[in-house]
């Protein structure tokens, strides 16, 4: 009889789902009731909060901005992180471990410290801006505070460590012999990358991209601190709605929509990957 190993995943899946639902359901339920301030909610079921979300440009613009920023960060992080992970995975040096340890250690630094560090580095009198102006690359200091570009930098700083570690393990699963075989048969380096490395690491790239995307969809600190109160992503709006305005119902609605959009994008990505995989299997 063929062993069904995937059943082993069932307990952890149920546990994760149970914990997620138990903690979220009570809060998300609030989205269907009218806010009476100070965390109190009406008793009549209503879709008023959802109606408001989808008719108010403040919330819709915020949703579009959040998705756009998260997508940008996911793509840029993969573009920057993959070459680093590849080099680390292929490096035959004792420095590999040191560099990996450095990345892991950097991942433990709290995001607030990372963000404040970035603000100092990118300050008008900071060494980066002074260097760029000295070289003539820019004529005035680059500001990362108070604009979406800065938030992208902050989020990349936040997610880069995880993604390099994930991609490192992905690259390690690709046998070096496959690359060598392609090279022996005369494939130039770019072709080896395009025909061997990229297809084999694609599932890992998608998973890493989705993890980074998901982290960014819910990221608050970078958007709040580097955004300088001018970049209203959904997590910033949720905090403002729940903490400042104590409108828990509306806060729950925004949270639910954020979660549903994130789940939908994840689902669609997995669906697309599955189709691609089937097509590739059929061709093979």
């Amino acid at each position: 009889m063929k062993a069904r190993w995937h059943w082993i995943l069932l307990p952890s899946l149920l546990l994760s789902l149970g914990l997620l639902l138990a903690s979220q359901i009570a809060f998300l339920r609030g989205g269907f009731f009218r806010d009476l301030r100070l965390g109190r909610m009406g008793t009549d079921f209503t879709l008023a909060n959802y109606e408001r979300f989808f008719t108010d440009p403040l919330y819709l613009d915020s949703l579009v901005l959040t998705v756009r920023l998260s997508l940008t960060v996911a793509i840029l992080t993969l573009l920057v992180g993959f070459p680093i992970a590849y080099v680390l995975a292929r490096l035959k040096s004792r420095w590999t471990l040191v560099l990996l340890a450095g990345i892991i250690a950097a991942s433990f630094i709290t995001i607030v410290i990372k963000v404040l560090g970035l603000i100092i580095i990118f300050s008008s009198g900071g060494f980066l801006n002074r260097f760029l102006m000295w070289t003539g690359i820019v004529s005035s200091p680059i500001a990362i505070v108070g604009n979406p570009g800065g938030v992208v930098v902050g989020l990349m700083h936040f997610t880069m460590g995880f993604s390099i570690l994930l991609l490192y393990s992905v690259v390690q699963t690709i046998p070096r012999s496959l690359e060598e075989a392609a090279e022996i048969h005369g494939a130039p380096r770019w072709r080896v990358f395009a025909r061997v490395i990229l297809p084999l690491s694609l599932p890992g790239l998608v998973v890493t991209g989705l993890i980074v995307f998901n982290l960014c969809m819910g990221a608050f600190t970078s958007a709040a601190l580097i955004g300088g109160g001018k970049v209203f992503t959904l997590p910033v709006l949720i905090q403002q709605t729940v903490i400042n305005q104590t409108r828990y119902g509306m806060g729950a609605t925004i949270s639910a929509i954020l979660m549903l959009v994130t789940l939908a994008i994840n689902g669609l990505s997995v669906l697309a990957m599955t189709k691609l995989d089937k097509r590739r299997s059929a061709v093979a």
Binding site: L116, I119, I120, S123, S124, G125, G126, A143, V145, G146, A224, L225, G228, G229, K230
Partner: peptide, 20 residues
């Protein structure tokens, strides 16, 4: 049209210190 709306006093102190 401020450079930043600060959430933590340390942010404004950092910006004042850095010359921003």
């Amino acid at each position: 049209n401020p450079f930043q709306f600060w959430r933590v006093g340390a942010q404004a102190v950092t910006l004042m210190n850095s010359g921003d």
